[in-house]
Structure formats: C-alpha cells, structure tokens
C-alpha cells in the first residue's frame, strides 16, 4: 500500500474532484449515511429469525386470504364503503378547490403584498407538510367519527396542493395582458377577471381533475383512523381476522385507484 502510494506521487497522481468541496467532506457524508443505516438496523433490531417468522406468517396469511370472499352481505358492505369513499373524494375536491382559489391568489407573489403572500404560503406549507392521515386523525377528534372528518382532512390537503400550484401558475402569467386591462382603467377585480382568470382556467380544470384522482386514493385510507369510507370496512375486517374479506377490499381499492387514474388521465388529455 505505502509502496504504491509512493510510486504514485513519484510519477504523478490525480484525484477525482468531488461535488462536495473535497474528498474528505465527501467521505464524511457517505460515512454518515452508512453509519445512519447501520444504526437504523440496530435500533429496529431486524433479525433473521424475525424475518423467517414473518415469512411463515405470510404463508398462513396468504392461505387465509385466498380466495377473496364475497358473500351478499359483504358485497353490500364493500359497495357502501366504496361509494362513501368516492362521495367523500368528490365533496372534498370541490370544497378544497373553492377554498384554495382565494388562497392561491393570495399566495401569488406578483399579485399580492408580501405580508399576505407569506401568510398564505404558511397555510400552504402546513397543509403540505402533514400526511393526510394526521390531518384526518385530528379531524376525527374535532368532529367525531364519520365521513365529515374525512371530507375535512381531504379538503385541507387539497388546499396545500392546489393553492401552491395555482400560485405558481399565477406567478408565470403574462403580465402584458394585465397591463392591457389596467391600461383601459380596469379595477383590481376586473384585472383578475379579465386578465388573469382566462390565462389560468384550463390549468385549473386540469389540476382539479388530477387532485380528484389523488383524493380518491386518500379517501380509501382515511377510514383507518375513523374518518369514513372503505378504510373503516378494511380496518374492521383486519380486526376480525376476516382476511378473505380484507383481500377483497384491497383488490377493490386497487381497482378503484387504477380506474380513477385512467379516467383522470383521459379527461386531462381532453381538456388540455
């Protein structure tokens, strides 16, 4: 090793430049990542025996789950849950978007004074930072079990998503058109109506459908913390060890999610 090191300095040596200032910092960063992963493994105590036990349990579970079960009574439960989920997704999308329209406008840097801008951005950031289930669990405590909590959670998440994209969209608009309306003596509201809205409307429609697609996904799981929809049914089936039915529900959810994705993709292509 040392011999090799010597010859390389003798004949000339070269070191790869690093994105992280120098190679020491680079190794420190990589080292930290490795240390963290090892620490994680140790902390969570992943052991081979637990894995094996899990695999055994998996065989049992799969045997329990297959074939997926669907008695008339359960079909009723399933359909009820799915319909509730879809209804929640629709209502939450509409309410969420109605609220995020003003929030988005207030968060557009080019249209608003900076204090309003920062306040609205704060609302958006908070909405985006929390997982929908956290929002849902808090909502359940605030208004009780049931779809209302789900609608509140999904609407709240919609505000962050939609408000941010809308604000970005507004920040990109062609200011020449605004000036044109201002130049003919339009009021601030008229500027919004004639100068801004037409420019962003197609995007708003596209984004609404996209968000609806996301809300369908979320509406199938918020029930796990009691906020209504098929998630409630799923959690019940797990708690009753009724794994045949669980599989049925999961497959139904996958189907609904895939259909929602396809529909939203088609509609968005039509609109744009």
């Amino acid at each position: 090793m040392s011999l090799e090191e010597q010859t390389s300095t003798e004949y000339g040596s070269w070191e790869r430049p690093s994105a992280f200032y120098n190679k020491y910092i680079k190794w420190v960063i990589y080292g930290l990542i490795v240390v963290f992963v090892v620490w994680s493994m140790w902390d969570i105590r992943i052991s081979f025996a637990r894995f094996v036990a899990g695999i055994d349990a998996a065989v049992d579970l799969v045997q329990n789950m297959v074939p997926p079960e669907l008695t008339p009574r359960k079909r009723e439960l399933l359909v009820e849950g799915l319909v509730e989920s879809i209804n929640m997704s629709i209502v939450a999308t509409v309410i969420g978007i109605l609220i995020s329209l003003p929030v988005g406008f207030l968060a557009a840097e080019n249209l608003m004074p900076s204090s309003v801008y920062y306040a609205s951005r704060g609302v958006i950031s908070i909405s985006r930072s929390f997982h929908e289930l956290i929002v849902a669990i808090v909502a359940v405590k605030a208004v009780g079990f049931g779809p209302l909590a789900g609608v509140i959670a999904l609407s709240f998440k919609t505000i962050g998503f939609f408000g941010k994209l809308l604000a970005e969209e507004l920040e990109d608009i062609d200011s020449g058109q605004l000036d044109a309306i201002r130049a003919v003596g339009g009021s601030r509201f008229q500027v919004l109506l004639y100068g801004v809205l037409p420019q962003v409307l197609p995007r708003i429609v596209g984004l609404s459908i996209y968000r609806w697609d996301i809300n369908i996904r979320h509406s199938t799981v918020v029930g796990i913390v009691g906020a209504g929809g098929i998630g409630v049914t799923l959690l019940n089936s797990f708690q009753k060890y009724d794994y045949d039915f669980s599989l049925t529900i999961i497959l139904a959810i996958v189907a609904i999610v895939l259909v929602g994705e396809a529909v939203s993709a088609i509609v968005r292509r039509r609109v744009q």
């Binding site: 090799e4 390389s8 004949y11 000339g12 040596s13 070269w14 070191e15 430049p17």
Partner: peptide, 25 residues
Amino acid sequence: RKFAGEDVQRAYEILDRVGLGGYDN
C-alpha cells in the same frame, strides 16, 4: 480510481499533446 502512477503521468502528457492541458478536471 487508482490508476498506476505511470498511467496518470502519461495521461497528463497526452492531454498536453492534444492541446487540452489544464482540462483534466
């Protein structure tokens, strides 16, 4: 990226020769 010292030395020479001295990084 540990090439023989001789290779590295020649790489510098050849880069000079093709007119790319100083572009190694």
